[in-house]
């Protein structure tokens, strides 16, 4: 139960941060990606602020045997660069560059009531399902 409450609280903090930093405005994202146009570095400052607050958390986590409310840490340990990582990230980048919307802001953005997110989120969920299906088909071979 404590983990569920903590997850809700962290989600809320995350969602608040996305709106405050204007990451729910696709025009701000696209202006960051538009390096040949009227470039807007806002997104870089969001990442900077995010890293300033996230690095101490992960440094502290590394020194702990287990998290405060759960049995163990589940942090990725892989270090290899494989085809899935490269191709998946490139496909992600295609979609991100087209609309200027990524998963966090799309879900948080539902709170604004803007139509774009209500179209984007179901399509993204379908993308998740397509991936699960593709992995299942590949595993069967």
């Amino acid at each position: 139960m404590a983990v569920i409450l903590a997850a809700f609280a962290c989600g809320a903090l995350f969602g608040a941060g996305l709106v405050v930093s204007r990451m729910t405005d696709p025009a701000v994202i696209l202006a960051f990606l538009d390096v040949a146009g009227n470039w807007n570095p806002t997104l870089a400052f969001v990442m900077g602020g995010g890293l300033i607050a996230a690095v101490p958390g992960f440094v502290l986590a590394r020194r702990r045997a287990k998290p405060a409310l759960a049995a163990d840490f589940q942090i990725p340990t892989r270090r290899d660069i494989d085809g899935r990582l490269l191709i998946g990230s490139a496909i992600f980048g295609l979609g991100w560059g087209l609309a200027g919307i990524c998963p966090g802001p799309s879900i948080a953005g539902l709170a604004t009531g803007a139509t774009a997110f209500f179209v984007f989120v179901p399509a993204m969920l379908a993308g998740f399902a397509l991936h699960a299906l593709a992995e299942r088909v590949l595993a069967r071979k």
Partner: peptide, 12 residues
């Protein structure tokens, strides 16, 4: 865009 973002983020 949603399909690409959903599929790509899972694959990557």
């Amino acid at each position: 865009a949603g399909l690409l973002v959903g599929f790509g983020s899972r694959l990557g």
